[in-house]
């Protein structure tokens, strides 16, 4: 074994440490999504509430939020009431139930109210792969033609909605109205 090989663990650790340090103290840019400006990926998946298959066409016609969620996701529990409020304000929200048990998802929706117009059951995560989902929740803003315009990683709370999403959503509504 050569000496430089033994240095490898130290080097790996130092690289990791530098990343952690930068991560904790700097305020860098948000992660860009490769999907922005591209059409929402096509899919053919069952609906969570039953009643047949859904495809990309179901998401067309109106600007909307597409929210990736799961009952296993603790952060989604925090986000859910906010989505309910947004729905009450007339925001169109579609759900992608990511890698979840369908019975659990139905129970969740019955228990905490259902803010989704439609809900796609992505049980094996194929749509999630196309969307480049890291975890949940993630939310995509799509326009009336089904083009992804913005992506938010993590929980949407009132502040995120006000500062990042509301303006963009209104803009898409205006575009669609013209």
């Amino acid at each position: 074994m050569r000496r430089w090989l033994l240095l490898l663990p130290l080097v790996l650790f130092l690289v990791l440490a530098v990343f952690l340090y930068r991560g904790l103290f700097l305020d860098p840019q948000s992660l860009p999504s490769a999907l922005i400006g591209k059409p929402f990926p096509a899919f053919q998946l069952p609906a969570v509430q039953g009643g047949g298959m859904l495809s990309r066409d179901a998401f067309l016609g109106r600007p909307a939020l597409v929210n990736v969620w799961g009952t296993w996701c603790v952060a989604c529990r925090d986000e859910h009431p906010v989505l309910n409020t947004l729905k009450a304000q007339g925001v169109v929200i579609y759900g992608v139930n990511y890698k979840d048990d369908n019975a659990a998802a139905q129970k969740w929706l019955a228990q905490f109210h259902d803010p989704y117009q439609l809900n796609v059951a992505d049980a094996d995560g194929s749509l999630g792969v196309d969307l480049g989902v890291y975890g949940a929740p993630e939310t995509f803003l799509i326009d009336a033609k089904g083009v992804v315009r913005f992506k938010h990683v993590g929980v949407i709370d009132q502040q995120v909605w006000r500062e990042q999403l509301a303006g963009r959503y209104q803009q898409l509504l205006d575009e669609a109205g013209q």
């Binding site: 990343f19 952690l20 991560g23 904790l24 860098p28 948000s30 992660l31 799961g70 296993w72 996701c73 603790v74 952060a75 989604c76 925090d78 990511y98 890698k99 995560g125 890291y134 975890g135 949940a136 929740p137 993630e138 938010h152 990683v153 993590g154 929980v155």
Partner: peptide, 20 residues
């Protein structure tokens, strides 16, 4: 560590849950 790093980088909260 990934959700922690993401939180530190963008302030976003994310669950990398049981599926992963």
């Amino acid at each position: 560590l990934y959700p922690l790093l993401l939180d530190a980088l963008t302030g976003a909260k994310l669950s990398v849950g049981p599926p992963y």
